[in-house]
Design a binder for these strands. Structure first.
Length: 507
RNA sequence: GCGGCCAUCGUUCAAUGGUAGGACAGCGGAUUGUGGUUCCGCGAACGAGGGUUCAAUUCCCUCUGGCCGCCCCA
């Protein structure tokens, strides 16, 4: 059975048969050209992502969890503008940092002012604290914020140019218990989401301690100069702490013997750190000391931490931090406020979503309607319109397909949506002043008074849904852990399949 | 910013220097007002621009975008 019958006329005339038309249209004119695109569609900007409806369940799950943690721990929501004066980040985050040096989305507006799409949430929050004289309020100030941030980096998975952070920050309290409880809050989210997470923690002390350590570190690395990479030699001059992040073989070896900052903390800094760890023990937060953990932003002091998946703790994966933060006691003063201690962190929402997907954590669907209203015929359609709105106002999650005529299609949609009940209104029901309530699971239909329809439905919905007898089909088979299987076998098989098909076609 | 790999219907996977094929999803049918199964049909793609060629989706270059590593970071 040949798939395409070529009409002789088409062959003779040499015209392009516009695909294999089911009806022989040989005599018809074929000139109707394929509709051509007038202009290529605009592209999504590099490193940006659309969040389509299918993704929303992740966002709403995390948003809900984050909000409940924030309010549970006593944080109040604050939203700052996406756009800030460029100088805020130069002063706050630090001129020397990569974020400010090469990743800023900055531009000059029509008024000639240099402004920047915020690359992080902490500096704007600190600015708000200063601008509104928050030190006049009872301390500590505990703020929760959620927003998009922008960094012009080379995108890859877990790294976008626009991404979302949610942050918790405490201003005006230097007590170590604050640090510990905040770390606990950061970890809480992962626990609630079912992700096995681990806190990596370190202290970089106060400024004098840090200076002393930097000197010693530089001295040590200079003594090993022959063993370290070119990059690290540069780093020693520019930003010495960064050498500890280097993954070059030689540098890793040198790092193993390198002095650790804890040994350079002055009494006060050390004491603070020890007490943070004690409180973490008390809170039973799974943490790991990382003597070489440093942060890239200038404003950090004392406690610094990251939250990673327990599975990633060893692998040192570069995009593995799902949340990170620390203490920044000097920032408020740097921005012109009265010296105010502060500590905070941010969750990286996109990375958490990736982790959720990666671990195949089940995420509840959103927007699942309970009831579908179906209609047959124009009079019924009119009544359905009103019924739909009555149910909606009553708080019933209800769906429709007003424009369809065939009941069959409407039931198909109702089925796909997964509603528990479908209300059917037809010619007959309209005349009788009744409605049909169909239980989509059992297929049992009940005739009810149209006016009592809403009440009846609410009564039914109040009862718990019976457990589904047929379990949903198992999700896609797990990817084989061993991906070393040679693929050639499959190819051969497919080739044979192709041949077989061709043979059939020839017959 | 640097290096490597890649780019085909909405998704996914093919094939090809000369008509781009399947699967899934979508849409529409299988007689009057009943979904989940089945059967049939339809619409749907070579990222953009240049070059080589009689002819480019295929070869070459540039751009754009994606993935991975580095820098750095959530």
């Amino acid at each position: 059975m040949p798939k395409t019958k070529k009409t002789p006329s088409a062959k003779v005339s040499g015209e392009k048969p516009a695909k294999a038309a089911p009806k022989p249209a040989a005599t018809e004119s074929v000139e109707a050209p394929k509709p051509k695109r007038t202009a290529p569609p605009p592209n999504l900007l590099r490193g940006m992502k659309d969040v389509l409806p299918g993704e929303q369940k992740y966002w709403s799950l995390i948003r809900g969890a984050v909000e409940s943690i924030a309010s549970g721990f006593g944080f109040e929501r604050v939203d700052t503008p996406t756009l800030e004066e460029t100088s805020l980040f130069v002063r706050g985050v630090g001129k020397q940092t990569d974020i400010v040096e090469k990743e800023l989305y900055s531009f000059v507006d029509q008024g000639g002012e240099s402004m920047t799409l915020r690359p992080e949430l902490t500096a704007p929050l600190a600015r708000a604290y200063v601008n509104h004289g928050m030190w006049n309020q009872p301390q500590p100030i505990k703020w929760f914020t959620w927003g998009r941030v922008f960094r012009h980096e080379r995108p890859q998975s877990g790294r976008y140019r626009q991404f979302t952070q949610a942050g918790l920050d405490v201003f005006g309290d230097r007590h170590p218990v604050i640090d510990a409880n905040l770390i606990f809050a950061a970890h809480c989210l992962f626990k609630e989401l079912g992700l096995d997470a681990l806190v990596l923690v370190n202290s970089i002390g106060d400024a004098p301690s840090r200076e002393a350590y930097k000197n010693e570190l530089v001295n040590y690395y200079r003594s090993k100069r022959s063993q370290i990479c070119e990059n690290c030699k540069k780093r020693l001059q520019r930003n010495p702490l960064r050498v500890l992040d280097c993954k070059e073989e030689g540098c890793v070896a040198v790092k193993a013997e390198a002095p650790q900052i804890v040994d350079f903390l002055n009494e006060e800094s050390k004491n603070h750190f020890i007490r943070v760890l004690e409180y973490l023990d008390e809170l039973e937060v799974p943490y790991q000391l990382q003597p070489h953990l440093v942060r890239g932003l200038d404003y950090y002091s004392h406690t610094v931490f990251e939250v990673v998946l327990a599975a990633d703790a060893e692998s040192q994966a570069s995009q593995s931090a799902l949340a990170a933060g620390g203490r920044y006691d000097g920032l408020i003063e740097t921005l012109g406020g009265t010296a105010t201690p502060a500590v905070g962190f941010s969750w990286g929402i996109e990375r958490i979503i990736l982790a959720l997907k990666d671990k195949s954590i089940p995420v509840p669907e959103i927007h699942v309607p309970d009831v579908f209203v179906a209609q047959l015929g124009e009079p019924a359609r009119r009544k359905t319109l009103a019924l739909f709105n009555a149910l909606r106002k009553d708080g019933v999650r209800v769906a429709e397909s007003f424009s369809r005529d065939a009941l069959k299609q409407q039931l198909e949609i109702a089925n796909r949506l997964g509603v528990r009940f479908t209300v059917i209104l037809g010619q007959k029901e309209v005349l009788d002043g009744t409605a049909l309530i169909r239980d989509m699971d059992s297929g049992i239909q009940e005739i009810v008074d149209f006016k009592k329809c809403a009440i009846e439905l609410k009564k039914k919905l109040a009862q718990p849904a019976p457990p589904k007898v047929t379990p949903p089909p198992p999700p896609e088979p797990e990817e084989p852990l061993l991906a070393e299987e040679p693929m050639k076998v499959d190819e051969d098989e497919e080739e044979e399949g192709e041949k077989g098909k061709k043979k059939k076609d020839e017959e």
